[in-house]
Simulated scan of single mutants.
Amino acid sequence: MNLDLVLTGGRVVDPSRNIDRITDVGFADGQVAAVGDGLAARAADVRDVSGKIVTPGLIDLHTHVYWGGTSLGIDAEDFARTSAVTTCIDTGSAGPGNFPGFRKHVIEPSQTRILVYLHVSFAGIYGFAPDLMVGESHDFRLMAPKYAAKVIDANRDVIVGIKVRIGRHASGPQGIAPLDVALGLSDETGLPVMCHIDEPPPSYETVVSKLRKGDVLTHCFRPFPNAPVKGDGTIKEAVLEARERGVYFDIGHGMGSFSYRTARAMLSGGFPPDTISSDVHAFCVEGPAYDQLTTMSKFLGLGMPLGEVIARSTVKAAEAIQRPELGTFREGAVGDASVLSLTDGAFALEDVEGEVLRVGERLQAEGVVIAGRWWHPQ
């Protein structure tokens, strides 16, 4: 079989297949064709990635990429170039009222893949500024499950779930009620919910106790108040029960939702996140989140092995969105790959509370393969 592209000589790390070795990855007809030695002779395009790490295309489970349509939006293709992310999951930037514009003007023209958690609020997370923060879930008149169900049924190729935001800032006087609306929409459409949580009320325990198997709690390692751990560092019982039910716990770093103190307590308690995501948007892309690779590097700095960090940004993220063709080098899978370097140096990585973790290595982007073609070298 002739191959369109081979990445040769790199350290291939594919947790979905328990691969971690120097070998080649071949692509044909937009798909993964083979992983093994000596593939270069069969390819029209050979890229020597010796000394680099080659992973299935990275998936960032929490992004905001409705560029130009919401004040939070960043450009997905620019993000791919700097963070080697081949699939951005936009989480609630658009609701049923403005999703058609998102699809036509951003998703369809994008060379990188954009999938969506559709917001249950009519216009999604429509407008923020650093000094203007109005939670879209404050006004119950904006909850639009009937409209959202219609949009979901017409766009199931790109909509993977339902987004709702809960907490003092996001839902304010409505408390947990918008989550009940989202769960009802989930029952109607069969899609899972991703729930944002910020400061109380309601409490972390109250929110997570409502989530079901397959639902995602994002901002899961947030700081006090509304952290998943008690003051003594022990994990709250409702959190343990939710994992037992099959709830996914996603990082969603963002502007205010990732604490080293919480992360250390959760990791020491044997509770790593299911997925690592950046929650990249216009107000955190220059810090403290920056991008997906910076967020992943923070977990390396906390002692998580490289393979586990990559799994939580590839196969585990694909599992959460029920897209098994992504996040793997299985033969016939989507032909996406991320080429990374693990760079030595002195790096200062901050969390949202201002704590700085000083590390001796970090991940950086070196190139991207999309649909079996070399797309961009960093």
Results as ranks from 00 to 15, higher is better:
residue 6 V to H: 07
residue 332 G to E: 04
residue 176 I to M: 11
residue 281 H to A: 00
residue 51 G to S: 03
residue 16 S to C: 08
residue 158 V to F: 14
residue 197 I to V: 14
residue 189 T to E: 10
residue 145 P to I: 04
residue 212 R to A: 15
residue 319 E to D: 15
residue 311 A to G: 04
residue 142 L to T: 10
residue 296 M to C: 08
residue 362 R to G: 09
residue 325 E to H: 09
residue 53 I to M: 12
residue 349 L to S: 11
residue 90 D to R: 08
residue 110 S to D: 06
residue 152 I to Y: 12
residue 276 I to E: 04
residue 143 M to F: 11
residue 67 W to K: 14
residue 346 A to C: 09
residue 101 G to V: 10
residue 323 R to A: 06
residue 339 V to S: 04
residue 144 A to L: 05
residue 121 S to V: 08
residue 67 W to N: 11
residue 156 R to P: 01
residue 112 T to A: 10
residue 309 V to A: 06
residue 269 G to T: 01
residue 205 E to D: 15
residue 342 L to C: 03
residue 186 S to P: 13
residue 280 V to C: 13
residue 86 T to A: 02
residue 272 P to M: 05
residue 108 E to W: 00
residue 300 L to V: 02
residue 321 I to N: 04
residue 20 D to S: 13
residue 120 V to P: 05
residue 283 F to E: 03
residue 193 V to G: 14
residue 334 V to N: 02
residue 262 T to G: 03
residue 342 L to I: 06
residue 240 L to M: 14
residue 156 R to Y: 00
residue 329 F to T: 05
residue 284 C to W: 01
residue 139 D to N: 14
residue 345 G to E: 08
residue 209 S to T: 14
residue 325 E to I: 05
residue 187 D to A: 06
residue 345 G to N: 13
residue 85 V to N: 02
residue 279 D to P: 12
residue 326 L to Y: 01
residue 115 L to E: 09
residue 310 I to A: 07
residue 332 G to S: 11
residue 127 G to S: 14
residue 102 F to E: 09
residue 230 K to I: 05
residue 282 A to Y: 03
residue 60 D to E: 05
residue 238 A to C: 11
residue 131 D to Y: 06
residue 1 M to G: 09
residue 151 V to L: 07
residue 70 T to I: 02
residue 11 R to I: 04
residue 95 G to I: 11
residue 373 R to G: 11
residue 114 I to H: 06
